[in-house]
Design a protein around this nucleic acid. Structure first.
Length: 469
RNA sequence: GGCCCCAUCGUCUAUCGGCUAGGACACGAGCUUUUCAUGCUUGGUAGAGGAGUUCGACUCUCCUUGGGGCUGCCA
């Protein structure tokens, strides 16, 4: 156990920006790696935007990503009295003074200013950026209390950090200039100056700070789109840090073991949605089969609607599939074991092809309902061709004779038809006829899952209504 | 304008003076193959420019150029 204490201090605006959450990730990893404490401070001084809902969203995002914090949440608004006491102290010691000022929007009033030293160099060794120095004369006095008497960020931030006994401040790059000011406040108060580590920004394709105009910028959006929290976490971590070897997909424990603030990069990193998508696929492949099966079942059972979103939330795999019982299309599968096997088989087929959890419902629609959409292009390309109707009806004939309704047996039927010239001419129309789509899991596995009755019915139906003579 | 920071494939990066510059994503080709994926094999693409230090520089120094941040009674 070390005495290291770090904090994540967001202002709760209802949206948690990815750049911001990356700072939380780095703080959390630093604390877990060093055995220190990770504190959460809610900078809720903006009363308009800091609603209970916004704070709930913040907690939710952090929990989703597995960013658990130590000790009680610290609310900045609860410390206003202390902020103002400290200001009085600064006033008394001559480190602050009051002055009448006119703000940008024309309001005139008395504000309290912090008096900067007039000479000397303010310097600190930033853990990620290295040695930083700035002449005191280059920094102007700055306001710490508004004319309405409310404390301003600079003083509130420093006082809270003192009160929370924060030892390392790990935050966004945009605060480097503030750091010189804050160090002066710490000194004026006779407090020990914490260590600093400033993180570069996440930028867009144009090299500008990543914003909502560049795509999903908030944690909640990734959650809604079916990203796994571990994938987002891993990707964000890699944006500016690496373990020093070629490993990229890391377990949480590996991250904790290997993370070092000193190795965090100084340069801004460009956000690459494609690599995140790849990473997400990697994590989806790693989901234990039983758990993935549960995800499928939940998506069908519309269990998700209870949550109001399509987010994936890790849960313990159960012994028996929850509502697997209901496979509307397969009334022939009576026993629980048969049904479980059916779901397991489907899950295995789907899992390897899934990049985003939100794509699952569409991918399995045709297996759990007769009410699936037909892709017009696929129909045009595969069914609206001369002779297809005859071909499908012939297949109905042949398939109906198959007793052992398994993928290999069905494949044998088509293989025989094709006489070694490629099964394409049969496979494609069948696929569209039974699933409505031109892509999906292996065709014969698909037919096995659908079962004989459904397959024959769909082939017949497609032959009668969609196929060309 | 002033102050501060940064600079290796398109992108994320490895390299801590010896490099035939490595990996991943993306992209191309191939194998497997009924589609889409997965998997495997494989290809191309990089050290902003200029001086200096050195036997030797992507690595160190300086300049130029380019990019970013800050410059509020926002945080």
């Amino acid at each position: 156990m070390s005495d290291i204490r770090v904090r994540f201090a967001p202002s709760p605006t209802g949206k948690v920006h990815i750049g911001n959450i990356r700072a939380a990730i780095y703080n959390w990893l630093f604390a877990r790696h060093t055995g220190g404490k990770f504190l959460l401070r809610v900078e809720d001084t903006d009363l308009e935007r800091s609603t209970p809902e916004a704070i709930a969203v913040l907690f939710d995002c952090m929990k989703w990503l597995g960013l658990d914090w130590d000790e009680e949440v610290f609310y900045q608004t609860k410390n206003v009295k202390r902020h103002l006491e400290v200001v009085d102290q600064l006033l008394a010691s001559g480190h602050a003074y009051k002055v009448e000022k006119t703000s940008r929007d024309g309001k005139t009033g008395v504000v309290t200013m912090f008096r900067m030293p007039k000479e000397g160099v303010i310097e600190f060794d930033d853990i990620v950026k290295g040695h930083m120095a700035k002449k005191a004369e280059d920094i102007q006095d700055f306001a710490i209390v508004r004319s309405d008497g409310s404390p301003i960020f600079h003083i509130a931030n420093v006082v809270d950090d003192i009160d929370q006994r924060v030892t390392h401040i790990i935050r966004g790059d945009d605060h480097v200039e503030n750091t010189f000011k804050h160090i002066c406040i710490f000194r004026a108060l006779g407090a020990e100056v914490p260590k600093y580590g400033h993180l570069s920004m996440i930028v867009n394709q144009q090299g500008k700070p990543y914003s909502k105009r560049d795509g999903a910028a908030f944690v909640g959006e990734y959650r809604e789109q079916g990203y796994l929290p571990e994938a987002l976490f891993n990707y964000l971590l890699l944006l500016g840090w690496n373990p020093g070897d070629d490993r990229e997909v890391l377990t949480r424990q590996e991250m904790i073991d290997l993370f070092e603030l000193e190795k965090v990069h100084v340069t801004a990193a460009m956000f690459d949605p494609k690599k995140l998508a790849w990473m997400n696929g990697e994590y989806i492949k790693k989901i234990p089969p039983a758990e993935f099966r549960e995800i499928l079942i939940q998506s069908v059972a519309e269990r998700r609607s209870e949550r109001g979103d399509t987010a994936y939330s890790p849960r313990l795999p159960e012994e028996e599939p929850s509502d697997a019982a209901d496979i509307p299309l397969r009334s022939d599968l009576r026993s629980a074991a048969e049904q479980k096997a059916w779901w397991d088989y489907l899950a295995a087929q789907i899992q390897v092809r899934t990049k985003f959890l939100k794509d699952i419902p569409a991918a399995i629609k045709c297996f759990v309902s007769d009410d699936f959409p037909f892709d017009e292009k696929a129909v045009e390309k595969r069914l609206k061709k001369p002779g297809v109707k005859e071909l499908l009806l012939d297949l109905v004939e042949r398939f109906s004779k198959v007793e052992d309704w398994t993928a290999p047996a069905l494949e044998a039927v088509v293989k025989e038809l094709s006489q070694g010239n490629g099964m394409g001419p049969w496979v494609h129309p069948i696929r569209v006829a039974v699933s409505g789509r031109g892509e999906g899991i292996g065709l014969f596995e698909m037919l096995q899952l659908l079962g004989k009755d459904n397959t024959l019915a769909r082939l017949r139906h497609a032959a009668e209504t969609l196929a060309s003579e």
